[in-house]
Amino acid sequence: MLDPAVIGIAPHHAVGEHAARASIAEQDVSKEARSFLRKRPSAPFPNKQVEMTQMLKTLVKDYGWIHTALGVLGNATFVIGSVLFLPQFEQLQRLAVWCFIVGSALMLVGALGSLAVKLYDDA
C-alpha cells in the first residue's frame, strides 16, 4: 500500500487541524470586516455623489436633444445599411452589416436617453 505522505496526501488528523485553523482565521477576518463596515460612513464621498447626480440630471434634462439626434442618426445609418443589402451593392455587404450594428446601437442609446428624460420629467 502507498504511504499517504509519499503521494502528497496529509494524514486525516492533519487535514482536520488545518481546517480548524482556517476556520478560526476566517472568523477573525469576518469580525474585522464587520467592524470596518460598522465604522465607515454611509457614503464615502457625499459631495462627489451629489455632484455626479446633478451632472447626470443636467445632461439628461438640458441636453435632451442629443438623445433625439443620436436616434435620428441611428435610423439614418440603419436605412443606409438596408439599402446596401440590395443586389446592386453586393460587394458592400460587410459595410451594410456594420451600418446595421452601429445604427441599432445609436437607436438604443437615443431611446434610453429619451426614457431617462421622461423619467426625470415625471420625478
Rank of each mutant, 00 (worst) to 15 (best):
V50T: 13
I7T: 11
T58V: 04
P4R: 08
R34L: 13
Q27I: 12
G8E: 09
A19E: 13
A20E: 13
P11E: 07
E32A: 15
R21L: 06
V6R: 15
P87T: 01
K57D: 08
A76S: 09
V6W: 08
V60N: 04
S42Y: 03
E17L: 12
K61S: 09
D62T: 11
S23A: 13
G16W: 04
A10W: 09
K48A: 13
T53C: 11
F45T: 09
E51I: 09
T58F: 05
T77S: 07
A33L: 13
S30Q: 15
T68Y: 05
R34G: 14
L59R: 05
A14H: 06
L73W: 00
K61N: 09
I24L: 08
E51C: 06
L73D: 02
N47T: 14
K57V: 10
F45H: 13
P87N: 06
G81I: 01
A43G: 00
N47I: 02
D28V: 12
P4D: 04
G8W: 08
L59S: 04
A33M: 14
A76N: 06
P11Y: 07
V15I: 15
A22E: 10
V15H: 15
P44Y: 02
A22L: 15
L86C: 03
K48C: 02
P46Y: 10
F45S: 11
T77I: 07
F78H: 09
M52H: 15
K61H: 00
A69K: 01
A76F: 03
M55E: 13
Q54F: 04
K31Q: 15
P41S: 10
V50G: 01
A43N: 05
Q88W: 02
P44Q: 10
V15P: 03
I80A: 12
A33D: 07
G71A: 08
P11C: 00
P87R: 01
G8Q: 09
P87Q: 00
I24V: 10
H13I: 12
T58Y: 05
N75S: 10
V60A: 03
M55A: 15
A20C: 03
T53Y: 09
T58A: 08
L70V: 03
Q54I: 00
W65F: 11
G71D: 02
L70I: 01
R38T: 06
A43M: 10
E32F: 12
R40H: 04
A20K: 13
E26W: 04
V79M: 02
L56K: 13
P44F: 10
S23C: 02
I66Q: 01
R40P: 01
K61Q: 07
